[in-house]
Each structure stands twice: as C-alpha cells, then as structure tokens.
Design a protein around this nucleic acid. Structure first.
Length: 214
DNA sequence: AATGTGGGCAACCGCGGGGTT
DNA sequence: GAACCCCGCGGTTGCCCACAT
C-alpha cells in the first residue's frame, strides 16, 4: 500500500463526485480510468471510478426493479453458466454483473429455496471478534449452493427446486444456421428463449439469431 | 421510544488476463 | 521473454434502512 493509495477516498459517492466523473467521461471517454485522479480533482482510484460508471452512472443501466422475465432469465442462465455474472449480465439487457449478482444473492436464492443461513444468522450473538466476523459474513453466494454449471445436460432440476426449468424442451440444433457441429444435448428451448448449456456455445451462438422451432 | 436483527445494495479487494513497452 | 499497466471479474464487506421486539 503506497502513500498515494491511502489518499484515495472510499465509500459512497456523492453527487459532486458523480458530476466530475461524468464530465471526465464526456471529455475523455470510458478509458484510462487510472488517469482520472490525476486529471481531475476526484480523490478516487481508477477502479472505483470505473465501477461507479459501470454499475450506476452508465445510461445503459436500468435502476428499476427486476421483472419476473428478467428473474427467470437469470435463473436459467445461472443454471447454465454458474457464477459467471458478467456472462449472465451480458444477456440481461440493462443489468450489470453486480446487479445480477446482488439480486441473485438476495432475492433469487431465497426464491429458489437455496439459502440456508443468512450471514447474520451465522453470527454467534454479541461477538465482535474479527475471526468470528469473517466466518459469519460468509458470502451469500456460497450460502445458496453456488450452482455450478450442471454436469448432466438433460435439463436436470436446479438444486433445491425444479420449477424454473419446467417446460423446457430439447431444441433441434439442425434448425440453427451455422456450420460447426454442436451437441444437441447442450441446447434447450422454452416458450420464449433459447438456452445453450455451455459458455463456449453461448459465445459461439452470440453471432446467430435462433430460428423459432415452433 | 430504544434497541436489535436481517435484508438489500453499493462499493472494495484480490486476482488474473491481455496488451504494450 | 520479462515487466508493467490497465481492465474486468467474482467474492466479500460495509453501510443504511425497515421491521420486529
């Protein structure tokens, strides 16, 4: 930790700081975040500035509540991708990885019945011991089962419940345009969305529009 | 009304990858 | 090829607020 690093402010952003950051981005664009504290009077490090923009200030970020459609999409994507929040967020328009991660850890874990203990429920009461605190604040992501990408591709139930994937049908990959061979068992289709059960395949299919199998 | 508890979310931390020099 | 810088990611923490006791 250098001395200059200690001079950076931490914690919540003020409106004034937001204005400064927005002005920097307006002039210089979204790059060279580490130059911001040098070129502006902002006492924030580059990472903090980038995070503030990406998670809050960007006009692409939605700030309203998650819809049921978004939640359903996140649940299905999480089943396929695990805790790869950036990949999931990339497929939920207007949502950031942080938003998706937080929403998963707070709302969806509980909704799916995956949460066992809250971080505060783990606390042996009235203990301020730092060691104990570290244990009790174990991340909610690990509390909720940390769904890794499923190993069996046949639309197995999500841990703890199965409703979110009910109604899935295997999708005939022959209806896709493309040249590469794809294991059909990796693809599913529900009423509204296509689902690809592999990050690599997700990337591969990014360039294609699904053909409605109906 | 005061205090405790839990939920929700913004922000930080540590690490790794990619690009540049 | 090594060193450095920048960026992005996932996990973790801190703070605030609402609600319960």
């Amino acid at each position: 930790m250098t001395k200059s690093e200690n001079e950076y402010k931490k914690g919540l952003w003020t409106e004034e700081e937001d204005k400064i950051l927005l002005e920097y981005i307006r002039v210089h664009g979204r790059k060279h975040w580490n130059r911001i504290p040098k070129l502006t009077c902002l006492k924030r490090n580059g990472k903090s500035c980038r995070l503030r923009w990406v998670n809050y200030l960007s006009p692409n970020v939605k700030h309203d509540n998650f819809t049921e459609e978004e939640e359903d999409l996140i649940i299905r994507l999480h089943k396929l991708l695990g805790n790869r929040w950036s990949l999931i967020a990339g497929r939920v328009p207007g949502r950031t990885d942080n938003q998706v991660k937080n929403h998963w850890n707070t709302h969806l874990c509980r909704k799916l019945g995956l949460i066992k203990q809250t971080r505060k429920q783990r606390l042996p009461s009235k203990s301020n011991d730092s060691e104990v605190k570290r244990i009790q604040t174990a991340p909610s992501s690990s509390n909720c089962g940390n769904l890794s990408p499923i190993s069996d591709h046949k639309g197995a139930e999500v841990q703890g419940q199965g409703s979110c994937l009910d109604g899935f049908e295997e999708f005939n990959v022959a209806q896709w345009e493309g040249e590469k061979h794809v294991d059909q068992s990796l693809l599913f289709y529900d009423d509204h969305n296509f689902v690809v059960d592999s990050p690599e395949l997700m990337e591969f299919f990014d360039g294609f529009d699904p053909v409605d199998p109906m």
